[in-house]
Amino acid sequence: MAGDAIVAEDLTYRYDELVAVDHISFKVAEGEILGFLGPNGAGKSTTVKVLTGQLQPREGQAIVLGIDIARDPEKVQAQIGVCFEITNLYEKMSAEENLKLFARLFGVPRFDAGALLARVGLAGRERDRVEEYSKGMKQRLMVARALVNRPRILFLDEPTDGLDPASAENIRKVILEERQRGATVFLTTHDMMEADKLSDRVGFINQGKIVALDTPHNLKQQYGKRALRAQVTSPDGGLESREITMDKPETAGAVQELFGREKVVTIHSEEASLEDIFINITGRGLTE
């Protein structure tokens, strides 16, 4: 049954007075990758914590894999993998020991730590203590640990944070492999390109509220603006730039006018990006 892996209804979490997650409702289909975007402090990590049973919802509910997470967290937790925002590994143990411990806690039979470590690019360093790892290596081990129990849902809170481009790309490959295997992925990231490339749908959260949730394509259609940028020679011989918004009724006329009346030096089209959309939706950038 290709149902919903996650159903959040009116989900709310407050830290004392502060409403971190404010009555949000959404669904994530099985096998889907949902990108979860928003500025710092928007409530992304808090949402992950509520969905994974680390925090109890104050209002509303979350049904994860058909189970109310507040009612039976262990049953859900046995089937999910969580990559935490902040590294929390046993520093005095090796990577291999870390993974083997969690394999035992999850009751995974015949667990192959070496193969999993190789997948995240840590082959050859299995026996080193985590305290001797670099930040990026620890981050990759965090991702590996989330995969130990072959989870049905992967919650990844900024999994590529602090990774070099090649390592980040490798982790993205792993995420896609997991989806291929049938896993659902709930992915939090500040990397707009990553969200765009990986996500089937993207949700924007701002001040605890989901402000948009759709496929990247639809969001761009709805909120983004594609544009043509041209450099033209000005009467005094210098360069000036012109911008024409695309996909509008007046676009064609504007383009004709540009070529008819100005000396165009260069021209290129600019695609709408998720970042533009976010600024558009929330009136602020992703980085404060």
Binding site: G53, E74, Q77, V82, N88, L89, E91, F102, L105, F106
Partner: peptide, 11 residues
């Protein structure tokens, strides 16, 4: 080290 949190999202 917040490892307790990691333990608690296992069974």
């Amino acid at each position: 080290g917040r490892t307790a949190q990691a333990l608690l999202i296992t069974p």
